[in-house]
Design a protein around this nucleic acid. Structure first.
Lengths: 336, 336
DNA sequence: TGCTTGAATGTAATGCATTACATCAATAAC
DNA sequence: GTTATTGATGTAATGCATTACATTCAAGCA
């Protein structure tokens, strides 16, 4: 591989001039610039990234930490992030923290060693101590997307989970439902607690008491939706007529549970999901759900991070709007 | 950040000794090693990766090129690859070529510039010229997984697509089906052509003629399965009793088409998918499908690549076995 | 003309780890 | 006791781009 020296020789100038022609063209005469560019093409030069990174103490790499790659919810977010990152000349490293929370630590340690320039958290599963500690460091660009921590003031771009949940419940109530169950994600997760609060507020405002067993906790997966759904629905005497789920996967799990219990959706039971993943349009019945602007979230979060890396200040919290997508899994409450 | 010099000072030795103590401990006395390790802990040293990479002309980064991150089929494969890569001290860069085939070129160009040490292709959509050209280079570690090119001898680990398809059709025939349709992935793709051949062979062996309109081409997506399914099934007079799809997503699209046409699955129509994605267990009815050992494929492909990087020779083609998973979407052929 | 100023370019130090080669001491061999 | 050998360690060059500082030259001004 030709180096900057070869270019300098071919362009009959110093390596400093070549470097400047590339990094800050305005510092170089038009004619020299031209000469350098020709020389670059001639010798087939492309800069050695390791050398550049070493000298500049940067890596042009952004780490995205997420709980589970295989969750299709994240893919559009990642796409949005990659678009922004690539066009700013950054690479993206995807860190799956699924199994091992200690992996997060390994990813965090990439920053002080200049192996990464910033981190985006798509999860609040990373131990708060670790995040807190990192955030306190002066030069540790760190933002979140979709999620947030209760006690850590990390810039985040997310939706209004309280309002979105409330909207879903309002909608169900407008269909005549009053017995509405909820299958949440892990309650350790602040966004899930927000959604639960939205659910509770809507129920309370409508003057409905909350039967404790109607509030169940899952882990966003098909399987947990199915299991919690079975338990929620098995007791015919005390069965909700609608279920609000914190993920589409869980909602689809509930659809399966309902089929197993011979419940018609939406005749006997309305089901509403969250995220609007691809499947939600192809399950039976098609799923009513809340859609998040996933691509926008990704883009905006990455912009924020790059701004912080560039030394700018960014808003502590940006709220993007959601949309209720009504499909077939919700209908009027059954008349008793 | 402390450098190797600081460690050398603290351990009262030269930087060379520190470097050796880390890279090849056997070249250093036990006592020195001990002293160095203490010094490292004391000053809180961790090696500067950019400097190391510069010196060694490597990057410890592997690129995985795939057609579409959001396809859940790939996630388990990626996990398998990451496991192997991480424990060998490599990072993984995921390259989505979804939209723009020119992106592949950008990823390929990471190798000659030492920004990546090897590439795994999970797609045969990358222009063959590019691949051919890269493969001819002496030092261009490149392997495939799941897929292959007809005319390029790239090491690959995949399944026997011909046999798997044939197995699926045999199974349908054993249920009494003789009118079996097929919705393939893009026929540009060699693995799809293999599957089609397997389908054709099984049909021919059973003495069945292939009605041309029963062989349809999709693109692996829900939507294409739905569309092709509608067309395949709309003509009641000339309708297959079973459909073999090259992806679960397409099979689920067919389920939707069948519902729309008021066909009972598996009463009127059997449907069989490919890949055994998570959703296949939660759709209605649950999908019969062919499962690939995705994690193994990922692990093995990454091992191959690392072997090649390490200068070893690897098998041109490794075939891992598939499994037919029978669920609810297949049943006996309807009696006429 | 002589001097200042600023733009353009060059020189050389720098970032950090690795490793070929040199040195030294201790052991083995005669 | 002397030389050859081996193992441990040190010295210094190396990989490549960047950039602070130095130099040069021409335009601008008195």
């Amino acid at each position: 591989m030709p180096t900057i020296k070869d270019v300098a020789r071919a362009a009959n100038c110093s390596t400093a001039t070549v470097s400047r022609a590339l990094a800050s063209p305005e510092k170089v005469t038009a004619s020299t610039r031209e000469r350098v560019n020709r020389a670059i093409a001639e010798v087939g030069y492309s800069p050695n990234v390791a050398a550049r990174n070493l000298r500049r103490s940067e890596s042009r790499t952004i780490v995205i930490l997420l709980p589970d790659i295989s969750n299709p919810f994240f893919s559009a977010i990642i796409n949005g992030m990659e678009d922004v990152a690539h066009s700013a000349g950054y690479q993206v490293l995807i860190g799956d923290c699924d199994l091992d929370p200690s992996r997060a630590e390994a990813y965090f340690s990439l920053l002080p060693t200049n192996q990464a320039d910033g981190i985006i958290l798509l999860t609040s599963d990373v131990p708060a101590v670790l995040v807190q500690q990192a955030h306190r460091r002066p030069d540790f660009p760190l933002v979140m997307a979709c999620e947030f921590y209760d006690d850590i003031e990390l810039p985040t771009v997310c939706i209004d989970n309280f309002a979105a949940a409330r909207h879903a419940i309002d909608y169900l109530q407008s269909l005549g439902h009053s017995r509405i169950g909820s299958i949440s994600g892990p309650l350790l997760n602040p966004i899930c607690r927000e959604r639960v609060k939205g659910y509770q507020a809507a129920m309370k405002d409508a003057g409905q008491t909350l039967a404790e067993p109607w509030m169940r906790e899952g882990d966003f997966s098909f399987h947990s939706g199915y299991q919690q759904g079975l338990q929620l629905l098995e007791d015919a005497a005390n069965r909700p007529t609608a279920v609000f789920c914190h993920s589409d996967e869980m909602a689809i799990g509930v659809l399966k549970a309902a089929r197993q219990l011979d419940l018609d959706v939406p005749g006997d039971l309305s089901v509403i999901g969250f995220d609007n993943i691809g499947f939600s349009e192809y399950c039976e019945p098609e799923l009513t759900t809340i859609s998040q602007p996933r691509n926008d979230i990704g883009q905006q979060a990455m912009k924020n991070l790059l701004d912080i890396i560039g030394g700018k200040q960014v808003a502590a919290r940006q709220i993007l709007s959601t949309q209720l997508i009504v499909r077939e899994s919700t209908g009027r409450a059954p008349t008793v």
